[in-house]
């Protein structure tokens, strides 16, 4: 279970990205985080694995206090939390297989990984994950030779290599076309349903939220303005989340 308690993040310039946020995510849930650009979705997801250090508040994951973890403990927490990014964040000049294997870096012996040596099981596992997301034939291509949708699958395979029990997906489909968006979301859904992995996914389109999410948290200017089931978002709630002038598109 993920518990976020009174989380606040104030950036160096004084901008308050998150304002006293608290919520809980039970194990195995698919939680969608929605809100306008700049409402704090990315900051929230990055605070959970402390890519961004929160200013105040606490986060507990499976009983571990993430916010108080020492660097060594943090690495152990991070390696069980996969992350998928809007811009895929692959290393372009490396092979797809190397990109996927990078998901094991928290597990393998650092000395060996520095000279690019991974245990045989890990390499087999990486090929299996690529097969799972349907691009096994691209394993030895360079990452930047792949299309956007393929790159995001590599991103998912990399997250799967971590044997995660939670995946943080930061607008995973925002730079993909609608067809690809559904195929990527289906992969996340399948991981969520079959492996019981908790998924926190920030999304822009409400139809995706309706289709894939178990529950929704909506942010506006760093505050939670809605928390509940996807079909509870009516026109009034919609205006609360997206502002008075917003119109529904999807």
């Amino acid at each position: 279970m993920l518990q976020v308690k009174n989380l606040t993040k104030i950036y160096d310039g004084g901008f308050k990205a998150l304002d006293n946020i608290s919520f809980e995510v039970p194990k195995g849930q698919f939680l969608a985080v929605i809100g306008l650009s700049g409402s704090g979705k990315s900051t929230l997801l990055r605070c959970i694995n402390r890519l961004i250090d929160p200013t105040a508040g606490e986060i507990f994951w499976d009983g571990d206090n993430v916010t108080a973890a020492t660097p060594e403990e943090l690495r152990r927490i991070r390696r069980k939390i996969g992350m998928v990014f809007q811009h895929f964040n692959l290393v372009h000049r490396s092979k797809v297989l190397t990109n996927v294997l990078a998901g094991r870096l928290g597990y393998v012996n650092p000395a060996w990984s520095l000279i690019n040596r991974f245990p045989k099981e890990d390499t087999e596992k990486a090929l299996k994950q690529l097969e799972r997301v349907g691009i096994a034939d691209k394993a030895y291509h360079r990452a930047d030779e792949l299309s956007g949708g393929q790159q995001q699958r590599v991103g998912i395979a990399r997250a799967l290599m971590q044997d995660p029990n939670m995946i943080l997906a930061d607008e995973p489909v925002a730079s993909l076309d609608p067809v690809l968006a559904h195929s990527i979301m289906k992969h996340l859904e399948e991981i969520n349903k079959n492996d019981g992995v908790t998924v926190l996914c920030s999304l822009h389109f409400l139809d995706l939220v309706h289709k894939y999410a178990d529950r929704v948290v909506a942010l506006n200017q760093g505050k939670i303005v809605f928390e509940g089931l996807p079909n509870e978002i009516d026109d009034q709630k919609f205006k609360d989340i997206y502002g008075r002038d917003a119109e529904r598109v999807g």
Binding site: N49, L51, R75, R76, I77, R78, R79, K80, I81, G82, M83, F85, N89, L90, V91, A102, G103, R104, L105, G106, Y107, P110, G155, R158, M161, Q162
Partner: peptide
Amino acid sequence: EAITATGAN
């Protein structure tokens, strides 16, 4: 960011 998030040192 992505590599840091995997728990790499």
